[in-house]
């Protein structure tokens, strides 16, 4: 069975923290262009989604951030998604980065993100608008 590619040498990642957030990871945009994860801009996501056949960009506003009952290493982030303001909660490691429109990578604990991933990161706050994806309506 195919397995996920290994993280870069030297990277020791906690479970649930994907390897592509490590600084220097190579990301392929929809037009084939390659960029480092730390160099991605809002426009890269928007333009990639425009090219995509089945995905489109949606905006997800952070409505609440609270500690997880499961572990102090996790946070629960509640988003209001899209024009219909659908409520979505995700439980993530506090260092898990989200991409904020016009701002870049942000996490609940940017110091840990920078420490573990070396990814430049700002503090994720209530009111931030993150990039999310939704499926285009296929007819």
């Amino acid at each position: 069975a195919p397995s996920a590619p290994p993280p870069p040498p030297g990277a020791v990642l906690p479970p649930s923290l994907p390897p592509y957030f490590v600084k220097g990871s190579i990301i392929q945009l929809a037009d084939g262009e390659l960029k480092r994860v730390e160099d991605l801009k809002t426009e890269d996501f928007i333009q990639s989604a425009e090219i995509s056949n089945d995905l489109k960009i949606d905006s997800s506003t952070v409505e609440r951030i609270e500690g997880s009952h499961t572990s102090p290493n996790f946070a629960v982030v509640q988003f209001s998604v899209g024009e219909h303001r659908a409520q979505v909660s995700v439980e993530v490691l506090v260092e898990y980065p989200f991409f904020v429109f016009g701002q870049g990578w942000s996490s609940c604990c940017p110091d840990r993100t920078t420490q573990i991933l070396e990814l430049p990161c700002t503090k994720l706050s209530v009111g931030d608008v993150c990039i999310s994806l939704t499926l285009k309506n296929l007819k």
Binding site: Y20, I26, Q28, V37, F45, S60, A86, S132, L133, T134
Partner: peptide, 25 residues
């Protein structure tokens, strides 16, 4: 001889942590 190591390349959409719920009419 040292074989060149292949660098993993990740698709852009893998960086977005979830798919928003789709809206039905």
């Amino acid at each position: 001889n040292v074989e060149p190591r292949s660098v993993p390349v990740f698709p852009w959409h893998s960086l977005v942590p979830f798919l928003a719920p789709t809206q039905s009419d």
